[in-house]
Design a binder for these strands. Structure first.
Length: 116
DNA sequence: TTTATGGCTGTCA
DNA sequence: ATGACAGCCATAA
């Protein structure tokens, strides 16, 4: 309709954020959503990832929920697969399969090139 | 156009 | 610590 969809790059925004996630680091949906200027559209982030185009180099597996765990998606084995990918990147999982967000939470750079 | 759902989040018990 | 309810916003039908 005549209403502006804002920008058609809503997906791109999410993709851009996820793409910025370094290895050995994880980000939550809410965090990505906030960084993508989507506000509380954390769910949409998950949808965007669900709608991921095939062949995307998007590290969607680095995006987890606020519990520090992968989404218990319907497909059995997907959570294990995601966890496996993160483990290879150096992310440590708990017995429950949880990650210490306090330690592995990706800290986005506000503006300057922050490297420590 | 509206309606329904969802890879979530945060608070309350 | 976990379990349940409601809120939020975009995509799909």
């Amino acid at each position: 309709m005549a209403l502006k969809e804002g920008v058609q790059g809503r997906y791109e925004r999410i993709y851009a954020v996820v793409e910025q996630i370094p290895e050995g680091r994880v980000a939550t949906y809410g965090q990505v959503a906030a960084m993508a200027k989507l506000g509380r559209a954390a769910r949409q982030v998950g949808y965007a990832l669900h709608s991921l185009p095939e062949g995307s180099d998007l590290p969607w597996h680095r995006v987890i929920n606020s519990r520090g765990e992968v989404s218990p998606r319907a497909l059995p084995g997907w959570d294990g697969y995601q966890r496996h990918l993160l483990e290879e990147e150096g992310v440590e999982f708990d017995e429950r399969g949880r990650v210490d967000l306090e330690r592995f939470r990706w800290e986005p750079a506000p503006r300057a090139t922050r490297a420590r």
